[in-house]
């Protein structure tokens, strides 16, 4: 039973990696949000699989919460915010698409080089999980720093969080249900706060370009 389960685990992990990578190079904000939703659903599947393979029933709950919050609610909030604030559909990228694709490769190589030696220590024996999770964290970080719009930066942080969640699953069969709940609640707060913040920003500056915040410097 375990080999098929591990296989599914690897496939789901690949989906997480590929969606992160495509979100990194995609110009359309809506498509990025949808990719994020797919990624979260894949993570929920991974969570369920780990629960099944290592008989950790609480992880079923984590997976279900993750699917509901990160897979459905957060993307919905983000898509509505984009429509309400009439944010232009194209991402404003500081790094070209080509540069971003290569940066994604750089993230992968860095993650593999740094985390590769630790792989035998990981609790879940699917070898790729740990480097993939660190790659996703780095890709999220890159999305956060390479986009102008506050909207994309929020998205980058969410992708980073997905990476952290995957790393938690790979290392410890999940971080423990309380911690997960805490993170999920934090994320929701983040989404709501960012929504208010984006509204305020739009009102004050007529723009969602994070660079205009520099004008606040004394």
């Amino acid at each position: 039973m375990t080999s098929d389960g591990l296989l599914l685990l690897e496939i789901a992990a690949s989906v997480v990696l590929v969606t992160a990578w495509i979100a990194l190079v995609h110009r359309r904000l809506d498509a990025q949000v949808r990719l994020y939703a797919i990624q979260s659903l894949a993570l929920a599947v991974i969570s369920g699989l780990v629960a099944y393979l290592y008989s950790a029933p609480l992880l079923y709950l984590t997976g279900a919460l993750f699917a509901a919050l990160n897979g459905a609610l957060l993307p919905w909030i983000l898509l509505t915010v984009r429509r309400e604030l009439r944010i232009p559909p194209e991402a404003n990228m500081l790094v070209s698409v080509r540069g971003s694709a290569l940066a994604g490769l750089g993230c992968l190589l860095l993650a593999v080089a740094v985390v590769g030696p630790l792989t035998p220590l990981a609790a879940v024996p699917a070898a790729g999980l740990l480097p993939i999770s660190v790659t996703v964290v780095l890709v999220g970080l890159f999305v956060t720093v390479s986009r102008r719009k506050a909207f994309s930066q929020v998205l980058g942080i969410l992708v980073m969080e997905n990476g952290v969640f995957l790393a938690g699953l790979a290392l410890t069969y999940g971080l423990g249900i309380l911690l997960e709940l805490g993170i999920a609640a934090n994320l929701l707060v983040l989404a709501i706060v960012s929504r208010l913040f984006l509204h305020r920003m739009k009102d004050s500056f007529d723009s969602l370009d994070a660079d205009v915040l520099r004008s606040l410097e004394g």
């Binding site: 590929v18 990578w21 190079v25 698409v97 694709a101 290569l102 490769l105 992968l108 593999v112 480097p131």
Partner: peptide
């Protein structure tokens, strides 16, 4: 470029 990066990533993995 995306395809090249994906292929190189696959080789690295």
């Amino acid at each position: 470029t995306l395809a090249v990066a994906l292929a190189l990533g696959s080789i690295a993995l």
